[in-house]
Nucleic acid binder design. Structure first.
Lengths: 126, 126
DNA sequence: CCGTATCCGTTCAGATACTG
DNA sequence: CAGTATCTGAACGGATACGG
């Protein structure tokens, strides 16, 4: 995933393609709002406005943008109920729920090392 | 972590501080280069130039910037050997190694759902 | 070899206004 | 309510040059 060296052999073409795709997905997923959206959805189904209230500081634009991206990658499912006013609901797919497990790990890690990190910052800034 | 609602009670001040700090750490760590650096280091100790070769596409500037950030947060340790030419080595701290475990999970997830995601993208783009 | 500083084009993200 | 489009300043990221 991280490695750089490829020989020029033809079967490496596939490896290079997979590697670059993995990088792309990595870049998509490893961003603040995407992670927070997935955490917020969890096992629930939420409307656009509910997500907006749930995630502090997210703008209308960023939320839309990231929801589209996650939908494109097949991590969330978008269902439009044809009523007025419109009702649009978002829910995690299986891939999304699988990703959520690893993100939970990241959250746990953050809380566990919160003190350690804060202390380290003070040391560094001095 | 994700929740927004706080009452005005005084003991919530700490919660709000911890929450905002967690967000900050989240933003620091959830970025492409930081994750790749941590993955690259793994159990090894690497020099600056070795990291640069290891991580495809990273610029001198980005590498420096992210190494400083990770050092500040206490995820990596930087040791300077007073020789000429300079020899600077980077290694994960315990917190860094703990984080690496969860990042490994993210890598596994990426590879596992690579096909699913690629297919979903083609469907979406049509 | 390693690090910092500067310049400069690109992308990002908020605010606002407007549709169904 | 949900979404799109546009505009504008800020932040990012690469290239380059120079210092320890």
């Amino acid at each position: 995933m991280v490695t750089k060296q490829f020989s020029g052999s033809p079967e490496d073409a596939d490896l290079r393609r997979a590697d670059s795709l993995a990088r792309e997905i990595f870049s998509d997923v490893a961003n603040k709002w995407a992670l927070l959206i997935i955490e917020s959805l969890g096992e629930r189904t939420l409307r656009f406005s509910e997500l907006r209230n749930e995630i502090e500081g997210v703008s209308h634009k960023m939320l839309t943008q990231n929801l589209r991206m996650l939908e494109r990658n097949g991590l969330i499912e978008r269902t439009v109920h044809p009523v007025v006013p419109p009702r649009v609901e978002y829910t995690l797919t299986e891939a999304g729920r699988a990703l959520r497990v690893t993100i939970d790990g990241l959250c746990d890690w953050t809380h566990h090392y919160l003190g350690h990190i804060e202390a380290s910052r003070h040391r560094f800034d001095a």
